[in-house]
Design a protein around this nucleic acid. Structure first.
Lengths: 167, 167
DNA sequence: TCTAACTTTCAAAAATTATTGAAAGTTTAA
DNA sequence: TTAAACTTTCAATAATTTTTGAAAGTTAGA
């Protein structure tokens, strides 16, 4: 396999993975492109490389910045904005965890808590509903705690936990 | 809040969460409904409760069965099929992990391995590409290993790991 | 076998989501 | 200021995904 092929394969795969994670394809592809590019890239360069429109490029770059995984770079003496993605994968994972926690886990925990508070009758159906949503809530809280720990942790902690898990 | 409201809120939230996880809304909602229902439900009952068509109900029930998180139940003396979702949340998490590993992590690991094997020149661009994809590959393998351990583990192991993480 | 009960399929329609490109907006430097 | 360089917006369009419902398929028992 030669470089161009590998590159396009990787960009493609990263886009597909994105889709499975509620991030759209273009966003995943832009991220992939920035990951493998040592230099920061301009909107133009991204449009060119991925063959997408200006509007599309702009929106998805903003999206990546919102996720906190792409940064603006200003080059001295240039008006154009350039963009880079951090190359530290553990840091990337941490940032994605942080965002998913905020965007998905928190709202679900909120609903699970709310529906716990129904205080009507003692029909069996209701007891069961409470039991299930309580279990979900408990589990979610455990996961949330673990994620929080991961997000705040340093590199060392992460590998230590992996070690502990494995033995 | 009264029961009907809580129920619909929960079903709604589970559907939304589903969307963020590459599972569609109806599929999430059906799963929610089965989770909180003690009795197994028929296609008819699901259609009725969620106000969806027969085709939609059928397809998404099949989807849930494919995910391994919903099971068919035959009631003695009845021709109709009924469906239930397991009520053990840890087991649910394990099954979802198993499937996501197979559907998402494995394909990505495969691509990352493949693109590693490019052996062209020693241009800086290529070196960098290899470095990034190697890091991604290493990280992915770690996560994959942890998931594998989780999937094979028993309840006890899981809580032990959480304990170890927290301290 | 035949029929009624039930499940599956699938083409068409609807809904949702992504993409385009041109116009509007903003900023910088002369 | 003004104009050029650049970024953002957004209505229109395209692409994709979901949903429908009716027809086809299957199965069990009379």
């Amino acid at each position: 396999m030669h470089y161009e092929e590998a590159k396009s394969k990787f960009i493609q795969a990263w886009g597909t993975l994105g889709s499975a994670w509620g991030i759209n394809k273009a966003m995943g592809q832009i991220h992939a492109l920035l990951l493998i590019s040592e230099e920061a890239l301009s909107t133009e360069e991204i449009m060119e490389e991925l063959q997408i429109s200006r509007g599309n490029a702009n929106m998805n770059i903003r999206g990546l910045i919102d996720w906190g995984i792409v940064n603006k770079v200003y080059k001295p003496g240039e008006r154009k904005e350039y963009f880079t993605a951090g190359k530290d994968i553990l840091e990337l994972a941490r940032q994605v965890s942080r965002e998913r926690r905020r965007r998905e886990i928190e709202p679900v925990m909120k609903v699970l808590d709310e529906v716990q508070s129904i205080s009507e009758g003692e029909k069996n159906e209701i007891k069961h509903f409470k039991a299930v949503t309580k279990d979900l809530g408990d589990f979610t809280k455990q996961v949330d705690g673990a994620m929080d720990k991961f997000i705040r942790s340093d590199k060392n902690w992460f590998f230590q936990v992996l070690m502990k898990m494995m033995r």
